[in-house]
Amino acid sequence: MAKEANINEAISARRVRVIDDEGGQLGILSIEQALSQAAESGLDLVEVSPQADPPVCRIMDYGKYKYQQAKRASEAKKKQVKVEIKEVKMRPKTEEHDFSFKIKHARRFLEEGNKVKLTIMFRGRENAHPEQGMMQLEKAVEALKDIGQVEAQPSKMGRFMTMMIGPLKK
């Protein structure tokens, strides 16, 4: 979260560039003059650009400004899409029915907009034949090509071979 803006007496600069509530420039004023201008309007003096030389202050209703900022932040959060990674685990010798069942799950995950991590687990002597796992992954990609695309090529680490598939971009 951004640092809170300095308002009214919390502004430490001696001279500030002042912008009124309609957006018009009032020029460079002493802090006392700027505070009296804000008080006349019944509004607050808010430091909007403290790094500028001299700092830029605006005469505005600070409560309303904070409310609008919070509202904008919540709107941005609503529009944000969170993509999860769902994992589907198989073995190199997974039978056809089980394979189609797992592909059905992967298809559902992709339709929901999530990424799918396909994992082939090797046990014992299966480690000597990684090509069987590769065939399983190729078969899965072929079954999901209408709804997903490969994002990470197959890689083997120890007993696992993994591949990442993401939903197709619209």
Rank of each mutant, 00 (worst) to 15 (best):
residue 34 A to C: 00
residue 37 Q to H: 09
residue 11 I to E: 09
residue 119 T to M: 05
residue 124 G to L: 00
residue 55 P to W: 09
residue 63 G to Y: 09
residue 25 Q to K: 14
residue 152 A to L: 01
residue 53 D to K: 06
residue 137 L to V: 04
residue 107 R to M: 09
residue 25 Q to E: 13
residue 118 L to P: 00
residue 159 R to G: 03
residue 124 G to P: 00
residue 15 R to C: 06
residue 108 R to L: 02
residue 151 E to K: 10
residue 63 G to S: 14
residue 110 L to S: 03
residue 55 P to V: 04
residue 134 M to A: 09
residue 80 Q to E: 14
residue 165 I to P: 01
residue 140 A to Y: 02
residue 109 F to I: 01
residue 25 Q to I: 02
residue 107 R to E: 09
residue 65 Y to W: 08
residue 68 Q to M: 10
residue 68 Q to G: 07
residue 95 E to I: 03
residue 121 M to H: 15
residue 13 A to C: 02
residue 149 Q to E: 13
residue 28 I to A: 15
residue 130 P to A: 07
residue 81 V to H: 08
residue 49 S to D: 11
residue 141 V to P: 01
residue 24 G to I: 02
residue 170 K to V: 01
residue 41 S to K: 06
residue 107 R to G: 09
residue 129 H to N: 15
residue 135 M to Y: 10
residue 147 I to L: 05
residue 87 E to L: 11
residue 33 Q to S: 13
residue 114 N to V: 02
residue 160 F to R: 15
residue 18 V to W: 11
residue 131 E to G: 06
residue 151 E to S: 13
residue 50 P to H: 01
residue 52 A to F: 10
residue 97 H to G: 08
residue 131 E to V: 00
residue 73 A to S: 04
residue 21 D to Y: 04
residue 122 F to T: 00
residue 102 K to M: 14
residue 108 R to Q: 13
residue 66 K to I: 01
residue 96 E to A: 12
residue 135 M to D: 13
residue 59 I to H: 03
residue 75 E to K: 15
residue 123 R to G: 07
residue 129 H to I: 13
residue 43 L to I: 03
residue 164 M to R: 11
residue 168 L to I: 02
residue 12 S to V: 01
residue 77 K to V: 05
residue 95 E to F: 14
residue 69 Q to F: 05
residue 77 K to Y: 08
residue 30 S to A: 07
residue 143 A to Y: 05
residue 37 Q to F: 06
residue 17 R to S: 15
residue 140 A to C: 00
residue 168 L to R: 10
residue 134 M to I: 01
residue 63 G to E: 07
residue 75 E to G: 15
residue 28 I to V: 15
residue 170 K to E: 08
residue 124 G to Q: 01
residue 56 V to Y: 08
residue 102 K to Q: 14
residue 127 N to L: 03
residue 23 G to P: 03
residue 124 G to Y: 02
residue 54 P to T: 08
residue 155 S to Q: 10
residue 80 Q to R: 12
residue 165 I to N: 07
residue 117 K to M: 05
residue 123 R to D: 13
residue 138 E to R: 13
residue 75 E to F: 14
residue 13 A to V: 00
residue 71 K to C: 04
residue 82 K to C: 08
